[in-house]
Design a protein around this nucleic acid. Sequence first.
DNA 1: ACGCTATCTGAACAGATGTTCAGAAAAAAC
DNA 2: GTTTTTTCTGAACATCTGTTCAGATAGCGT
Lengths: 201, 201
Amino acid sequence: MARTAGSHSDITGPRIQQAAQRLFARHGYAAVSMRQIAGEVGVQAGALYNYTRDKQSLLFGLMQDHMQELLATWGARPQGNGPVAALEAFTRFHIRFHLERPEEVFIAYMELRNLTPENHAAISALRGRYEDGLEAILKRGVAGGVFDVADTKIATLAVIAMLNGVNTWYRAGGRLSLDEVETVYWDMVRKAVAPAAISTA
Amino acid sequence: MARTAGSHSDITGPRIQQAAQRLFARHGYAAVSMRQIAGEVGVQAGALYNYTRDKQSLLFGLMQDHMQELLATWGARPQGNGPVAALEAFTRFHIRFHLERPEEVFIAYMELRNLTPENHAAISALRGRYEDGLEAILKRGVAGGVFDVADTKIATLAVIAMLNGVNTWYRAGGRLSLDEVETVYWDMVRKAVAPAAISTA
DNA sequence: ACGCTATCTGAACAGATGTTCAGAAAAAAC
DNA sequence: GTTTTTTCTGAACATCTGTTCAGATAGCGT
């Protein structure tokens, strides 16, 4: 046997990425074999190497695509007038974007240690750019007196960590709608960075 | 060759756990082999099985020990008078406890998916008890009017997620002391759950 | 209808995986 | 000093790992 009926790189390529994403998210990069991925696609393991240089590139590709889409989508957003509106826009965007792609997010956070040093640096740089975007908002707010945080870098990481937590429990069709979840978190973020006695409620 | 000079189960047992902890935290459960762990201890792979039933039990033991110590240490703490003091005590305790054992924490959060279903349920139950402790504080505060959150369950998870974030960036000997870090986070937590216009600052 | 290229198979490679176990030697008990 | 027990080795087990590649077939351009 050889080339199979209906085989097409436009089909197989994306299917390999999807299968890898599903399996990496579910079981972890190290626990997933190339044969498992191939099996999910309905192909032999050797065929994967028409689409990826090796297993590491498969992981890196997924993570890079995710981070670049995150940055591009965020960059194309209306930024909001003033730091408070910008922070609200960020909060709602972040929650929605991340809840829409739980697998990508999970991989992006859990599989960093399985990247080669160069790949790790590349992904970290992208993540840093995203974090800098939030920190810039906080800095403007602090300068303008509408926010009050002891350290904008720590506050940035604290806010992102808090927002990322939503991915651990939210399930579509649950008690709260996506919109309600956004509002609940925005309420906490807003207050957390607000000046001590002035609340914008 | 056979039993080696100076061999002692009181020594080897803990050394295996330490080695497993170090390696699991660094490279992930699935990426670490029994031979690597044995090598770290200076022993052949077969010797590990005098101390653990299998690799899975080694992981589960580490996670269970960690969670039980977390609960025991927290349970033995002064609880603080009133919800605000209790929340501050929780915040400071959580940060300190977690920063003191980054490897255990990392494993407890990253390796859940590598547990068998029964083991996963056991660890999740322990984690649930810890979260319930925080939620009880929040509920008392909401009832007493000193906290205002839309949903105590979500607020619980949000607070814990935010606090856990500290483990991703804090390094001993950095810019801020442990005490300062605690205060910075407590400041944000306090405000995040505070009623809209009343701040305890 | 024919040739070219894209796509996949199936076997092979060298080595790693978790786990078991008979046997040997060190330590402890007597 | 002898026996018993504890602790470890080293080999073996069957299976899995990522990756390569010659060869075979399907689809496409002509």
